[in-house]
Amino acid sequence: MSNELTDRNFWANYWESKKGLAFKVPTTYTFHKLLKSVLDKNQISTAIELGGFPGYYAIFLKKYFSIDATLFDFYVHKPVLNEVLAANDLVEKDIKVIEGDLFQYPSEQKYDLVLSAGLIEHFNDTQDIIARHVNFLKPGGTLFITLPNFTGVNGWVQRTYDADNYSKHNINSMNPQLLADCCKALGLKDVQSYYYGKYSIWLENKEQQSAPVKAFFKLLWLAGKVVTKIIPVESKLMSPYIVVTATM
């Protein structure tokens, strides 16, 4: 892959270290309201989730909306994928799976919806990785991208307590205006780019942290929840995500 901040070995180790991956994807899965709105406004029968292993959003779309869903990723851990599918009463044939390199794969098939969650921030050239999404879009199709916001409180937590994970992210990409400009430069229309979510923080290595760090983490989490309950706004400082939508 080109201009990436991670490699195949990173993702193999990442997924093999994760626990509890095989769960039933709920109707209220993250971004469900936004995705429901996209589906309500557009005629969508096919969708591809890029970089989405183990395919929670592909499963969400197939399971609850009967969308013909495809999962595309650079690394697919088949045993984990089968466990996740089984937990959702699905089998391998229910979700199309493509293991490949976005920078080499001939995107001949086009889709009504192209989405990714937590993918584009792992690349240095933001416009280029968005262009890889656009290659899969049908004319009139919808682009739906989400990424974490590490430019506020959550970013400070990541940088302070999990610097290795933080370094695998292109922080410069976490800019709604930049993302909107990239989409417009690629000829996309109806572009929207914004901070999303009231407040949340997380750590991939939380279980390995000391008791004092875990206690501080909980205190910071509670404090942020209180603040955003009083002032319920989505912002660079507090929101955990950035969302981008556009049409071809």
Rank of each mutant, 00 (worst) to 15 (best):
M1A: 10
E4H: 10
T6C: 14
N9R: 07
N9P: 03
W11D: 01
W15K: 06
E16T: 11
K18D: 08
K18P: 02
T28Y: 05
F31K: 03
H32T: 06
L34H: 13
V38G: 02
K41Q: 12
A47N: 09
I48W: 00
E49Y: 15
L50R: 04
G52M: 08
G52F: 06
G55L: 04
I59G: 01
F60S: 05
L61S: 07
K63V: 04
Y64P: 04
I67M: 11
I67Q: 06
V80A: 06
L81N: 05
L90P: 03
V91T: 14
D94T: 04
I98P: 03
G100D: 02
G100L: 10
L102K: 14
F103A: 08
Q104S: 08
S107P: 04
E108Y: 00
S116P: 11
I120F: 07
N124A: 05
Q127L: 13
D128I: 02
I129C: 02
A131D: 12
H133F: 03
F150D: 01
V153Y: 07
K168W: 08
N172Y: 14
N175D: 13
Q177H: 09
L178G: 05
C182R: 03
C183H: 08
A185G: 15
L186V: 06
G187K: 10
V191M: 07
Q192V: 14
K198F: 06
N205R: 08
N205P: 10
E207P: 05
Q209H: 09
V213N: 04
F216Q: 05
K218P: 00
L219Q: 13
L219A: 11
L219P: 00
L222G: 09
L222V: 01
A223N: 06
K225E: 15
V233M: 12
E234T: 15
S235L: 12
M238V: 11
I242D: 01
V243R: 01
M248G: 11
